[in-house]
Write a protein that binds this DNA or RNA. Structure first.
Lengths: 113, 113
DNA sequence: GCCAACTGCAAGTCTGGGGTTGCATTTGGA
DNA sequence: TCCAAATGCAACCCCAGACTTGCAGTTGGC
């Protein structure tokens, strides 16, 4: 019905899982600065190319990264769209919690006078 | 200099890791609806109390949950603050990526005419 | 045409952490 | 007072996934 996490109670943990690894986060933010291939990233980061490839697959699966070929290279770049979707949803959820909390407090105070 | 993740390049993966587990997410959203103790949650969710206790520790460590004693119960409740912080930061990062992307495209098109 | 460089596939290792069970301890409240 | 119910601690199991090494296949570009 919806791909956003507020659409239902679908767990958005997949996206979070993609963001939860340090190496993956480094790769992602690095791609945010400028697109790069797996081999190029492997030269910059202290992990093997294969490890990076796997991370890129996860990131692509989460919709956080997009790939296109340039010459014989497979260049990846970071996509902001999914991330801002998640941000918006998180913000809504947080607001709902705090609102509910405030309601409870108000109710408790008002009702006990 | 800053506790937010945009402040530096500090990896915010700790918070994401806290959100990345399904069971933990269920616990967190459940607490968002109404505060509850570990034992109460254990009765509602298909996991042992001990598992829930560990999850609550993680959530508390990430600043997503707060606890206070009521009678002999230790009641936990979800806090929106940290979550909206993360949301704001993610949104900024996403915007920066897209902006950079747009710049590159514009530059490429303009330069190749 | 050829080679250097990039990608893809396949095992295989090993640590983290999610989950459980069991028991000890405390304490609220009828 | 006394018990049911809540918390805390500890040892243990088990698997997902992060990382590596090694090799085979493809292809761009001089």
């Amino acid at each position: 019905m919806s791909t956003t996490l507020t659409g239902g109670d679908a767990a958005p943990t997949a996206v979070f899982a993609a963001l939860a690894d340090d190496t993956r986060w480094r790769i992602l933010t690095r791609l945010g600065e400028a697109p790069a291939s797996a081999s190029a990233l492997a030269r910059e980061l202290p992990v093997s190319r294969q490890a990076i490839v796997k991370h890129l697959e996860v990131l692509r699966g989460a919709g956080l990264v997009e790939a296109h070929t340039v010459g014989r290279e497979l260049v990846h770049r970071a996509l902001g769209g999914r991330l801002s979707d998640v941000a918006r949803d998180l913000d809504r959820i947080a607001a709902a919690w705090d609102r509910r909390l405030a309601d409870i407090k108000r109710l408790a105070e008002g009702g006990e006078v």
